[in-house]
Write a protein that binds this DNA or RNA. Structure first.
Length: 585
RNA sequence: GGGAUCGUAGUUCAGUUGGUUAGAACGCCGGCCUGUCAAGCCGGAGGUCGCCGGUUCGAGCCCGGUCGGUCCCGCCA
């Protein structure tokens, strides 16, 4: 091999006359009989190298056999290109390297797909040959953005006195929350470790141990069904701080977020991030992770529908609407599609009417008097050419369905710009959700989340309306971080456990040492964790988490490249005293 | 656990109402070609239509099941 003197992205006119060596992959071959052009590629770029039968002393017949993705080492002289041969689309397009000698380092077998753009192959094939797909420019760019995000995070947090500490990957299985990935113990037959869903307990312990400000960029594991933005193993920027309140969290995390966006994308996120309470977010956007890049807020129309002759909404707990500017263009077919869309979220239907000639037409408009038409147009800001969509149901269904409709319409109408980033804090989450199936309260965030000071009394009197000191940072419709101020009082912790149906003994059994540790001098503390992959998705401008993970899994949690999960040998199972049950049926 | 959708050459796709020998482009192989940069021109090879079963005189196409990919609901403290 000729050790490279340059990468494939750097040679310029100033290098003309130099003898250089390049190493890289054959990106394309253009064969013209007695002259062969090859674009040699590495992760820094591409350079055109030229084999000319007149000047090349080696075996020219072999040169003619070069094919895509062969790995070459070449030595040659940098030459200027003729004016007409300059390629302005290439960073190195003003020069070429005339090859004097080359070594075939690895001849590539015929490829399962062409490595130019990702549409050339379906995803299952690209995942099987992920090492080939990772050669593509788009993924190399994403991996670089991810790398820069790690670096920006570490440098910022370290400068802010955060200490990076690793916590165990083999830990105790905890109930509540997501399903754990389990790891059987060989030494303790029948016992299992769990892979962390998050290092929650350890980081609180670290606060009790006095480490003040902790962070870790860490893998977490949740054995749940997947989505476009969810993988079974994913990465968090996990943080915990002592002697702080919400304001410290907000300002520190805004600083981190701004630093990352500036360093990685040169985007300035100016000022303090806006805040919405959970109730405001739900009422205004029908979502606890609202996309603030566009308006289309939800409007309460119950008083109007009550005054109309439209009876289907009379018994609805909540009737809300959104106004779509220019939406009167929607055909029956599109409205039917949108109706099917909201039905996924349990809405019974989608009522509509179009603004026209100073009033409303179509849909359910005939059930509303002319006076109602006028007051609704004025109150809701409807103009000719707009459409009003309404949903009536119990509050949670109305808000959720309309919130999703808002996002769907924004997508159809292309209301978002990729380089627009709109962060917003969501605060004052409810402490508990009622689980109908289990007939008990479950923690909305987790069992260590503190209630608001003002709401501590409600733990006894009105638990379902107790608000917590939890917070999420959301951006463009994604939850990118979530956390809370923790309970540091043993008394309140026990109260919360009992509301969750856990005795002190059960709590110690289930949450291990943390409960006991809280009794030995726990400082007030709180923390937050960023979904690192989602953050990188936003920075990279992709909507798919697999685009920002080097070796992702499919939606059925398999790896098509290494074919995991897989069977293991009987010996391995014997060591663990594990026997596989035959599946039922 | 449920719903939607996709699966045809190495790859991306087309394939009519169920009817003779399943097509195109790119890639691959061979030939021509000294200035291309998606090089061009000529020729060739390449198919268990995901798999199993059914309906039919006849299935890539219709039906049932199954496997795999994707998206969504549930789930994800």
């Amino acid at each position: 091999m000729f050790k490279r003197t340059h990468t494939c992205g750097e040679l310029q006119k100033v290098n003309i006359g130099d003898t250089v060596s390049l190493n890289g992959w054959v990106n394309t071959v253009r064969l013209h009989g007695q002259v062969v052009f090859v674009d040699l590629r590495d992760r820094y770029g591409k350079t055109q190298i030229v084999f000319n039968a007149d000047s090349f002393s080696g075996d020219f017949e072999a040169v003619k056999k070069l094919s895509m993705e062969d790995v070459l080492s070449i030595k040659g002289q940098v030459k200027p290109r003729a004016e007409s041969a300059i390629n302005p689309n290439m960073a190195t397009g003003e020069i070429e390297v005339v090859v004097e000698n080359y070594i075939m380092l690895n001849e590539a077998a015929p490829l399962p797909f062409v490595i130019s753009d990702r549409d050339n192959a379906e995803e299952n094939l690209r995942l099987k040959y992920r090492y080939l797909e990772l050669r593509m420019e788009e993924l190399q760019r994403n991996m670089l953005i991810r790398h820069e995000t790690y670096q920006a995070t570490r440098s910022y947090l370290s400068a802010e006195k955060f200490v990076e500490i690793e916590t165990p990957m083999l830990m105790k299985s905890t109930p509540e929350g997501a399903r754990d990935y389990l790891v059987p113990s060989r030494i303790h037959h029948g016992k299992f470790y769990a892979l962390p869903q998050s290092p929650q307990i350890y980081k609180q312990i670290l606060m009790i141990s006095g480490y003040d400000r902790y962070f870790q960029i860490v893998k977490c594991f949740r054995d749940e069904d997947l989505r476009a933005d969810r993988q079974p193993e994913f990465t968090q920027i996990d943080m915990e701080l002592s002697f702080i309140d919400e304001e410290d969290i907000y300002s520190t995390m805004e600083g981190l977020t701004k630093h990352v966006f500036k360093q990685v994308r040169n985007v300035e996120l100016s000022g303090s991030f806006p805040r919405l309470t959970w109730a405001e977010a739900m009422d205004t956007y029908g979502s606890d992770k609202p996309d603030l890049r566009y308006g289309m807020e939800l409007k309460d129309v119950k008083e109007f529908t009550n005054a109309s002759d439209f009876n289907a909404f009379k018994s609805a707990e909540r009737v809300m609407a959104i106004v779509v500017e220019g939406g009167a263009k929607y055909s029956r077919k599109i409205i039917d599609e949108l109706t099917d869309y909201v039905k996924k979220y349990k809405a019974k239907g989608l009522a509509w009417m179009k603004g026209e000639n100073g009033g409303f037409t179509g849909g359910i408009s005939k059930f509303f008097s002319d006076d109602l038409h006028q007051s609704m147009r004025k109150e809701l800001g409807v103009n000719d050419g707009d459409i009003l969509f309404m949903i009536g149901d119990i509050s949670s269904i109305t808000l959720n369905a309309l919130g999703h409709l808002r996002v769907e319409i924004a997508k159809r109408e292309s209301l978002t710009k990729k380089d627009d980033f709109k962060p917003v804090w969501i605060t004052e989450f409810p402490m508990f959700e009622y689980d109908e199936e289990a007939d008990r309260f479950i923690a909305m965030h987790h069992p260590f989340t503190a209630p608001r000071e003002d709401d501590i009394g409600k733990l006894d009197s009105d638990p379902s309306n107790t608000l917590s000191r939890g917070y999420d940072l959301t951006m463009n419709g994604y939850e990118i971080a979530g956390g809370s101020i923790r309970i540091h009082s043993q008394k309140i912790q026990e109260k919360v456990f009992s509301l969750l149906g856990l005795s002190r003994e059960e709590a110690i059994e289930k949450f291990g040492f943390l409960v006991e540790a809280l009794t030995y001098g726990a400082p007030p503390h709180g923390g937050i964790a960023f979904g690192f992959d989602r953050l990188v998705m936003l920075l990279a401008g992709t909507e798919n988490i697999r685009d920002v993970i080097a070796f992702p899994k499919t939606t059925s949690a398999t790896s098509l490249m290494d074919e995991s999960p897989s069977n293991v040998s009987l010996d391995q199972l014997d060591d663990l005293r594990i026997q596989i049950k035959q599946s039922e049926k």
